[in-house]
């Protein structure tokens, strides 16, 4: 579904050039859930923005559904770290924003918006304004908005990282449930190892600057997955430990 070949990105910063990504090769299969982990500043957002068509790579090619990405596509949606809701629009109207901009059929999507809001536990909040909602609820609205046009690809840039730990876990579980009801290819950036393991089919680990593909870890744990005590707790711990070592290379000598 998504293919990156020999993708590099160099930014011209104030203090010379910043080599953000270096020769990335990655293929994401249709309906796969890939999480992208790495230290802060290693180029995760940059990679996501390239797939979204918001940024053209310095070299290399990015394709989605076999077509080179040159500008934002209608079947790819982006969810940000911040809710990015329009403060004057009630919840339902916020969810419907992409429908208006993309010129889709309003009536059928209105129904869909109600369904999505119900799915994330926001039924009855359709007429509220964003400032009347908690941070977690706002991010749920943002999630509904990014799903409204039924995208083939959903790109999520640390979408839950501004939330408290419990809300974050709740939303992770909800996201899995939503994904079981509708197939979507998801690339999800996070710096939380727990989140990466909980959500992913594969975890892509990037090394620090310049961002290189360090390792791809398969997560073969049956779904739905939850944190805490369950049948797969051992396996979750195992994978998490592996990721931890990859991300914290200095410490491994002491602990292993």
């Amino acid at each position: 579904m998504i293919q990156l070949s020999h993708v590099s990105q160099v930014f011209a910063g104030r203090q010379g050039q910043v080599h953000a990504l270096d020769d990335i090769d990655l293929e994401v299969r249709r309906n796969e859930f890939v999480t992208l982990v790495g230290r802060s500043g290693c180029g995760k957002s940059t990679m996501l923005r390239m797939i979204a068509g918001l940024l053209t790579p310095t070299s290399g090619t990015v394709t989605v559904a076999g077509e080179p990405v040159t500008k934002p596509r209608r079947d790819v949606s982006f969810m940000f770290q911040r809710p990015a809701l329009l403060p004057w629009r009630p919840v339902l109207e916020n969810v419907l924003l992409p429908v208006e901009i993309l010129g889709l059929d309003r009536d059928s999507h209105r129904r869909r918006a109600h369904e999505l809001l119900e799915l994330v536990g926001l039924a009855g909040f359709e007429k509220r304004l964003p400032h009347e909602l908690s941070g977690g609820m706002q991010q749920r609205v943002s999630l509904c908005r990014s799903l409204i046009q039924n995208p083939n690809v959903l790109l999520m840039d640390e979408p839950f990282s501004a939330l408290d730990a419990l809300t974050r876990e709740e939303l992770s579980v909800e996201l899995q449930r939503i994904r079981m009801e509708q197939e979507t290819t998801i690339v999800f950036v996070t710096h939380s190892i727990e989140e990466a393991v909980l959500l992913a089919d594969r975890v892509v680990v990037l090394s620090a600057r310049p961002g290189r593909l360090r390792r791809i870890v398969e997560v073969d744990i049956p779904r739905p997955r939850t944190l805490g005590h369950n049948a797969h707790a051992d396996r979750v711990t195992e994978v998490s430990a592996e990721l931890h070592e990859l991300l914290m290379p200095v410490r491994t000598g002491e602990t292993a």
Binding site: P72, R73, F78, R82, A84, L86, L97, E100, I101
Partner: peptide
């Protein structure tokens, strides 16, 4: 973040103006 949102939806300048920038 609203500028990015509008960009990611590939909105026209007119749409961006009337739906986001002016109301804001």
């Amino acid at each position: 973040e609203l500028v990015e949102l509008v960009r990611s939806l590939d909105a026209s300048r007119v749409q961006a103006f009337f739906k986001v920038r002016f109301p804001y």
